[in-house]
């Protein structure tokens, strides 16, 4: 073989080796979650998987992202909508994790992400964490997001949940507050007024007491 041929052959071998190495690294990457493969078209599944992998690299819980995609599939959403939803959720989860801190549970992070996506400012979440540094924020976050979703002004809802947390309100009482505000709104009370009125009854009636008025928390 001539020197030129030898260099060409080496170059080709090198290129082939590089290609094989790249292929090997590509093949050894984590396979797409089979739920995505089963429920989405291949292109969408791959797009979603890219977002999931990037999120995982940033320490974001990935299961909520996968189930978001599956939810979209079940609701027959357009592929681009599914991918966009997964991206938005990923960004919200990352922000939630940063605000709540590294010891937050996946549930807290998911709930906080939902709250952020509904417009609750990060500052509110940070202050909530300060009110309950060790306790679970899951229920306060669920209640906060619910109130905002029902058109309670964000400032009012934030104030209410922060105030309740400051009082050491139990989760069950917070859920009851939410249920009552919902009922009041259904009966025509303005969301803000309902929230403030019900908030003022917190902290009362904790001691063993005579029977309450009928209705309780069922309506």
């Amino acid at each position: 073989m001539s020197a030129r041929s030898w260099r060409a052959a080496c170059g080709a071998a090198f290129a082939l080796a590089a290609a094989l190495a790249w292929l090997a690294s590509a093949v050894s990457a984590a396979p797409i979650d089979k739920r995505l493969v089963e429920r989405l078209d291949p292109t969408t599944a791959e797009e979603v998987w890219k977002v999931v992998e990037a999120a995982e690299a940033q320490g974001v819980p990935t299961d909520p992202l996968i189930v978001t995609a599956l939810e979209g599939a079940s609701k027959h959403a357009r592929p681009e909508r599914i991918v966009a939803a997964v991206r938005e959720r990923s960004a919200a989860l990352l922000a939630a994790k940063e605000v709540l801190g590294p010891e937050s549970t996946p549930g807290e992070i998911a709930a906080a992400a939902g709250a952020l996506m509904s417009g609750v400012p990060r500052d509110t979440l940070a202050r909530l964490r300060q009110e309950r540094p060790k306790g679970s924020l899951l229920v306060p976050l669920v209640v906060l997001a619910d109130l905002v979703t029902r058109q309670v002004p964000i400032e009012t809802a934030s104030m209410a949940v922060l105030h309740a947390s400051r009082l050491g309100t139990r989760d069950a009482d917070l859920l009851r507050l939410r249920s009552r505000v919902e009922g009041d709104i259904r009966r025509g009370v303005s969301p803000a007024a309902a929230t403030i009125a019900r908030l003022q009854t917190l902290g009362l009636g904790d001691a063993p007491a005579p029977p309450t008025s009928p209705g309780g928390s069922h309506r």
């Binding site: 978001t68 939810e71 609701k75 939803a85 959720r89 899951l138 997001a145 979703t149 029902r150 249920s179």
Partner: peptide, 18 residues
């Protein structure tokens, strides 16, 4: 009877249970 989930990715409101 349950809180609403704030996520409205696909136009259909879900519920939340803790």
């Amino acid at each position: 009877a349950s809180p609403l989930a704030p996520e409205d990715d696909f136009g259909i409101r879900n519920s939340v249970i803790v």
